[in-house]
Nucleic acid binder design. Sequence first.
DNA 1: GAGTGGTCTAGACCACAGG
DNA 2: CTGTGGTCTAGACCACTCC
Lengths: 246, 246
Amino acid sequence: MDLTFSIDRGSPVPLYFQLSQQLEAAIEHGELLPGTLLGNEIDLAGRLGLSRPTVRQAIQVLVDKGLLVRRRGVGTQVVHSRVRRPLELSSLYDDLESAGQRPATRVLSIEETEAPAEVAAALGLAEGTPVRRVERLRLTHGEDPIARLRNYLPLDLLTLTHADLEATGLYRLMRAAGTTLHSARQSIGAKAATATEAAALAEEPGAPLLTMQRTAFDDTGRAVEYGTHLYRASRYAFELQLLIRP
Amino acid sequence: MDLTFSIDRGSPVPLYFQLSQQLEAAIEHGELLPGTLLGNEIDLAGRLGLSRPTVRQAIQVLVDKGLLVRRRGVGTQVVHSRVRRPLELSSLYDDLESAGQRPATRVLSIEETEAPAEVAAALGLAEGTPVRRVERLRLTHGEDPIARLRNYLPLDLLTLTHADLEATGLYRLMRAAGTTLHSARQSIGAKAATATEAAALAEEPGAPLLTMQRTAFDDTGRAVEYGTHLYRASRYAFELQLLIRP
DNA sequence: GAGTGGTCTAGACCACAGG
DNA sequence: CTGTGGTCTAGACCACTCC
């Protein structure tokens, strides 16, 4: 533990966050190897000119990320590799964010419709309430289709254009419109492709498809998006990492 | 906010945890309705005879669970319904824990084999290292099969018997043997059933199956279990809730 | 301007792990 | 026994939101 961390008290970045970022970088770059003890919190605080609660807060951030483990009477250790680069919300970020980079997006339609029962229930609206429906195709570099994405949104949240959606991704647009996504609930299943679905996705009828339904909630717990998506099983899988609460 | 919380300083339960539990119960029972402001932290601390950091710690627990939202300059609010009862790690708990309750388990085999490449890579062992392989069938009340579960474990972790596995579930057994699960990494996909798989699961060949591969890690980041499982898409879906980090 | 959460300090005592 | 993290206190100043 002869690493040096530098804390800049003039920065607007919180001290605990400066420290946690530098710790994370050191772990990521292999300067802190798996199993390494971090040294006790009080010494660390003294060396950095911080108080112990501030150091604890920094460490807690990485414990929450699964990079460090605390053991009472022992110390704080770097976790034994592999639990890295979480890909955290692969599905959600890949679907909603996707800044028009790797996978291309083709917008099939943007329409105002009356919410079917399933959608109304998910969004907490009355059946038949007008909502916006967006259908998109996700493609690999303009070639093979990967997924058909169908999203429903309340009308008052934002306005959508084909150009925006093909350039920027739904998530960024919602964020720009002032909506902060906070949590989401997903259900992942599988089914055999119907003839229509197969045609849209360049598969054979009966081919296995992954299905995903998601409801996303903002800050206040309001449902701001419901999506029901289809993925070609031959081209896509959901990666996810989870921490287990004791 | 005329609720009364009682803090017992004689209890071994941490004060912040006593408070967070009572808050959670109040929310769960509808005594604190969605949207309710909690009242500022300093007053709350004063009323309870606690310090502000302790109250903050209690609130933070519920923020992490997605039950409360903090807004600077505004206050702390109860989230607008629906984001409740997370089903948190449905897949993992359902698969590993399963105290022999709802879904029945039939143990097909427990064998010592040499780790194939895929398993060795996941567990961080050399290819060909001896490992324990467990195959189980998950059934609804002894009738229809739901899933075929295949797990690989290092030999030194614990010993397994058919009786134990049908009664208690792998997760509990590992815990009893001193292993604390800490995090897991999963991949969820889909495929068409082969003839063999179809026969085991009472499906037609070609029927869609959900596939899941999982590597579970303990405290120290050591890989302690690798599983590759098949679920009948007609009977099973993964439910999961995730929080989004800003 | 008033009120809120966000951050930070400098201490303290306790519970648990290990030799 | 010593050393560790776990909890807790009583303050302080700041940044933000809303009126």
